[in-house]
């Protein structure tokens, strides 16, 4: 079930990300790096780290043309983007290329494409994700990967399958961090199946489960 759920999470990664951005961040104020088992057995999500709020404000100023914040924005993005690319591509050289290209595109697009109402880090990570995807496809075309990794999803295009398998692997790892209750809640969310709760309780559990999933991705893929 976890594998199937991870496939579904990976296939809906973009929508899930959008959904996650809409969810208010539960557990703010608990301090960076703090997580503890809650009474439901889940892992309480980290508080929104202060660098994120700082990054949002600085990215807005950078998009406006304030060059004095350039170095600080670069510093706030550089390490997380590198870690993120390395975690997706699992190859230092490719991750370095992807991170470099992603940083260039982030700053190139900031004046025109950065939406000031949205958080900067997810926007930047989305660009980095696309660069990783491009490099993964390029790597596949060079036949540098084991073909057995490419055909995991039956009926899918081989390159797309490779990218999807990477996303699925990432989703499995993140889902492994969640409690059984959270996983059950996510199954109910994605499959519209009956859960042990309903109505407002289910909605609340869904928000917390998605929030903890987001927190798990952030911790695993170097966004903290």
């Amino acid at each position: 079930m976890t594998r199937a759920l991870a496939n579904l999470v990976a296939q809906n990664a973009e929508q899930l990300d959008t959904g996650l951005r809409r969810v208010p961040f539960v557990g703010e104020g608990t301090g960076p790096g703090a997580h503890a088992r809650s009474s439901t057995g889940g892992v309480r999500a980290d508080a929104a780290p202060r660098p994120q709020a700082e990054l949002d404000a600085l990215m807005e100023r950078l998009a406006d043309g304030d060059r004095s914040v350039f170095a600080r924005v670069f510093e706030l993005l550089w390490a997380p983007i590198q870690r993120f690319c390395l975690s997706l591509l699992r190859n230092e050289a490719d991750a370095a290329d992807a991170a470099q290209e992603a940083m260039q595109k982030i700053f190139e697009r900031a004046p025109a494409d950065y939406d000031r109402k949205r958080a900067a880090m997810p926007w930047a990570m989305a660009i980095a994700g696309w660069e990783c995807r491009t490099i993964a496809r390029r790597r596949f075309r060079r036949r540098e990967v084991d073909d057995s990794a490419a055909g995991e999803l039956p009926g899918a295009d081989a390159e797309e399958a490779l990218v999807q398998s990477n996303l699925t692997r990432a989703a499995v790892a993140a889902l492994g961090e969640l409690s059984d209750t959270d996983r059950e809640t996510l199954v109910a969310t994605f499959w519209d199946e009956a859960a042990s709760a309903s109505g407002a309780t289910l909605r609340k559990r869904r928000e917390r489960a998605l929030d903890r999933l987001r927190g798990a991705f952030r911790r695993l893929y170097g966004l903290d």
Binding site: F70, Q100, K105, F107, E108, P111, A112
Partner: peptide, 9 residues
């Protein structure tokens, strides 16, 4: 390099 891309953009 990033700065150059930013200014050119």
């Amino acid at each position: 390099r990033v700065r150059i891309r930013y200014e050119l953009a």
